[in-house]
């Protein structure tokens, strides 16, 4: 299929299933009150993180935001540490000091996910700047939402990255809502990809629910960046199935219609790739079932690990304010 190796397609598929199952389980635990940290679930947007991260190398950098469980998992972060962080336990990826909105996995290039909207965009420009100064081959990816394109630093960052031809990909996950506000109510021009042209950058809009399309677009942008061609802005049109924060779909709050949600659920990114893989005989029903069971177990092990882990010691309160030499 489309000149992409089977192994890559299956890995992408697995990643999406892993994110979905992890997020569904996290949502259940939020609903039960077992997870208290505010969780912004990624369900429905899996193809973006999976497609982009599949095109990256392990030591490439990525930065996320408040809705970053998917980025963490797609880049290859350990889900036990992630689940433990959602329980704010000492074994969490941020030692229980971050919670859902401040997660990190430097070992796989995720250097942070600050939830202040757009804050990590210039920081990702900074890791790209470091690659340029050090003449390294690493590429940086900044993941942000549509709402972030209303922040000044977004434009400052596009300009500087374009000016210096830095190796960075700006990936906008356009899920059509900025918290409760539909895009048309907050953006004078709702084409986000078009904004790239003001800086002389390639800007493309793609179907963010099509993992293959995301992977291909990311691959092309990454190759360009790695070879000194500078940044690309990729706008991925997608949709979050749950509300801005928490487990609910928010339909009862009147923020969006059931018809709209149904439309997007019918465009499920996982189902879409799955159908293509099955059609092309790249995935059998048995293999699909195996993947599903394997991931179910992984996630349950993560939940168990998180529940059994200790909370941080009181002394942790004043640890890590500064790094000691």
């Amino acid at each position: 299929m489309l000149n992409i190796e089977k192994e890559i397609l299956i890995k992408m598929y697995e990643t999406m299933v892993r994110i979905r199952r992890f997020e569904e389980r996290a949502g259940e635990l939020v609903a039960k009150g077992e997870i208290k940290t505010p969780c912004h679930l990624y369900i429905g947007e899996e193809a973006v993180a999976a497609g982009v991260c599949q095109a990256l190398e392990r030591d490439d950098y990525i930065f996320g935001n408040h809705r970053s469980h998917g980025h963490y998992i797609a880049k290859g972060g350990d889900i036990k540490s992630l689940m433990a962080e959602l329980f704010c336990k000492a074994t969490g990826c941020s030692k229980g000091k971050g919670g859902s909105m401040h997660i990190i996995a430097p070992e796989i290039g995720l250097l942070g996910t600050p939830p202040i909207v757009a804050a990590s965009i210039p920081i990702a420009v900074g890791t790209a700047l470091a690659s340029s100064i050090k003449n390294e081959n690493k590429v940086s990816v900044s993941f942000f939402g549509d709402g972030a394109t209303n922040e000044g630093v977004f434009y400052e960052s596009l300009n500087f990255a374009a000016l210096k031809k830095l190796p960075i990909i700006f990936v906008c996950e356009n899920n059509l809502y900025s918290t409760h506000m539909p895009l048309a109510k907050i953006l004078a021009d709702t084409s986000i990809a078009k904004k790239a042209s003001a800086f002389g950058l390639p800007g493309i809009q793609i179907d963010g629910n099509n993992a293959i399309e995301v992977y291909q677009a990311a691959k092309e942008a990454i190759n360009l960046a790695r070879n000194g061609g500078g940044p690309t802005l990729i706008e991925c049109k997608t949709y979050r199935w749950r509300g801005h924060v928490g487990f609910s779909d928010d339909l009862d709050k009147g923020l969006r219609s059931k018809e709209e949600l149904d439309y997007w659920m019918a465009k499920c990114p996982i189902k879409r790739l799955e159908e293509e893989l099955i059609k092309d005989n790249l995935l059998s029903q048995e293999e699909k079932e195996e993947i599903s069971q394997k991931i179910e177990k992984e996630v349950e092990r993560a939940v168990q690990f998180a529940k059994e882990s200790p909370y941080p010691e009181e002394a942790e309160l004043s640890e890590n304010i500064f790094k000691d030499v």
């Binding site: 250097l111 965009i121 210039p122 920081i123 420009v125 900074g126 630093v153 960052s157 500087f160």
Partner: peptide
Amino acid sequence: AAMTGAAIGA
């Protein structure tokens, strides 16, 4: 703001 962010990233 962005230049400060870039320095942090670096």
